[in-house]
Nucleic acid binder design. Sequence first.
DNA 1: CATATAATTGATAATAAATATCAATAGATA
DNA 2: TATCTATTGATATTTATTATCAATTATATG
Lengths: 154, 154
Amino acid sequence: MKNHHPVTPKEERLAQILAKIKGRDFRLTPQRLAILNILAASEDHPSVDDIYKEVRNRFPTTSIATVYKTIALLKELNEVLELGFPDGSNRYDGHRPYPHPHAICTRCRKIMDPEISSVDELSEEMKKKTGYSFSFHRLDFFGLCPECQKNSRK
Amino acid sequence: MKNHHPVTPKEERLAQILAKIKGRDFRLTPQRLAILNILAASEDHPSVDDIYKEVRNRFPTTSIATVYKTIALLKELNEVLELGFPDGSNRYDGHRPYPHPHAICTRCRKIMDPEISSVDELSEEMKKKTGYSFSFHRLDFFGLCPECQKNSRK
DNA sequence: CATATAATTGATAATAAATATCAATAGATA
DNA sequence: TATCTATTGATATTTATTATCAATTATATG
């Protein structure tokens, strides 16, 4: 079982990204591939440093600059979503790069990706009323998750 | 015509904020009042530096640290909304502090505040599906404004 | 398969936004 | 008016990100 056509959604996604990269005379380096895989695989929302630490498990010489550069590339290709935290740092969502909102706990930092049907309507309304052509977005709600709510009531 | 009860929405708003400040043994300093007025008056979305420059017209000794501290206070009181730019810097919206989306041009940096009716539904759905209690949010769409779209088509 | 070209890496310096520090100042209260 | 303590202002520090550039290496080509 070696080279084969993509079957799972994840493999398909990865294949698409690779096609995009090859199509624009970017090069496919092992570091990039590793970062890509980490992002595509992670169900949570890693920081640059999280990603950095994980890549170094497989490629111990990887520089943090490479992580930043790869993420910048993926942002440009619209294959990763950047969540801006109020403290100035960022998190990355490589899982569902189309518009979707996050629920972010400001205490424990837990992030949820609920399925929200009204997003499409919102996007549509925004496009109609502004005339903008959007390429990315941040739809993030900040507050307390259910657990932290309990703990804060004494 | 000196001290009088608030009549315009803006005056009312300001009066509310002042009440909040007094209620929590914060002090009402001239610098704070000036920053507050700037934010309440500005129809666009100033950066910290924009605000800093404007305060210094009236209070030339004002420090940038004071601007940061005042904005932090207003964020805490939920009286100003922070927009995170992809470049890491922030903009501030003191005009409509309840949930509303922005359309941000990544080329000319123009920001629009359209009236979007589906936001309420989105907020409601988010609350129901996550159980979070939200205190602030970022609903920002990034892309090209109509003018920059024209200019980019050769 | 060997080679040439140019994109990319890795190490580190530079930048920039925001926060922390702390003595001096000045609101608020009695 | 005097006291108390939050706030200011100046600056140092922190932290995230970007820039720089020589060395490396992916890719195309002969």
